[in-house]
Design a binder for these strands. Structure first.
Lengths: 189, 189
DNA sequence: AGTACGCTGCACACTAGTGTGCAGTGGAGA
DNA sequence: TCTCCACTGCACACTAGTGTGCAGCGTACT
């Protein structure tokens, strides 16, 4: 049930991914529905965007808490994190744009938990001398996963090639030596 | 002469840096001037944005061609590049936002020359085995200087601390080993 | 057959921005 | 002093989006 609502959400992710300033009308017609119908499911544009964000945040926090609980080394945990979120990263590339822009404030709040989990992971790596300390954990984690989104955005076919490159690039900037980075990535099941 | 025009441009850089969607009215009042006056100098919003971009591009291409002519090694050239553009990078952080958004097409075109020069520099480094090859030169250069802008945006006081951290972070992601990166940065006059 | 419900296709009011026209004002320079 | 010119302050027309109201329509379920 609610297939129209789901289709609107799916399509909105695409449309807003292409152009974060797209209007309700654009989303509606992309979903093969009339604008009025979208308002039937989401009272306001912000509601739609918030729902989208909550979806994304739920997925990412699930992965991150799972990984954090596994007690793996920070660098291995990072590799697993990228490997697991990569398939959906391109779909959620819109998050990058949403943090700035109209609803920045509201969205930023929702992303808070993800930010914290990532910062914790990076900090753990820095404390264990696995990651470099040229930047504070909060900043480094933000920039690193910003790079992941940027690369996912670039990698249109979203192949495994991109996943490997993204993982290596971020490991490098986290201060992991290239040889170790390659080993970690190739050990991935 | 034209001090009002210059003030508008300066202020616009700040205002649009804060909020890329700011209107002509916001820019005008921030410049202590009435909206109508802004239109006196710039026939349309796009004209203003284009002028701003041309300014930034001119500065960056000047630095890059200068460095490219010096014939330094790619990694040393990169360090010099960051050192020289860093002081103005925070001012031009708006460029990040402008590439997407309303005038993306137009702005992207203007940034072309900068993109090419950067890609050339990175490619030179890859050919000489100074930089890693996990990503094509075009992508790697884009992501790396995206990180520079992101860090400049984060580093509110825009101190030399940030410059050092930004340089090291980007060198790492370019595949330069940490020891070498630190040496390069500390050799900087 | 009847009903409930989700979608449609209009209508509307409202907001916020862009870009233009034009008369008026004040100060700097010939 | 007179003139030029930049800036002002208002008017306006236009666009593009948001969000709402309401009658109608078709389909699926009972």
């Amino acid at each position: 049930m609610n297939e129209t609502r789901d289709r609107i959400l799916d399509v909105a992710l695409d449309v807003l991914g292409e152009n974060p300033d797209a209007g309700m009308g654009d989303i509606a017609s992309a979903a093969g529905v009339v604008r009025r119908t979208v308002y039937g499911h989401f009272p306001s544009r912000l509601d739609l965007v918030r729902t989208l964000t909550e979806r994304a945040v739920a997925e990412m926090t699930a992965v991150l808490t799972d990984i954090n609980a596994s007690g793996a080394a920070a660098d291995a945990a990072w590799v697993e994190f990228i490997a697991r979120v990569w398939p959906v990263t391109h779909r959620y590339r819109v998050l990058l744009a949403l943090r700035r822009g109209e609803y920045g404030e509201a969205i930023h709040g929702l992303l808070g938990p993800v930010d914290e989990l990532l910062a914790d992971l990076v900090e753990r790596g820095q404390d264990g001398d696995v990651f470099a300390q040229h930047l504070p954990a909060g900043t480094l984690s933000q920039v690193a996963y910003g790079v992941v989104f940027a690369l996912a955005d670039d990698d249109q076919q979203n192949g495994t090639l991109g996943a490997r490159a993204a993982t290596i690039t971020t490991l490098l900037m986290l201060g992991v030596p290239e040889t170790r980075a390659v080993t970690l990535v190739d050990d991935q099941p």
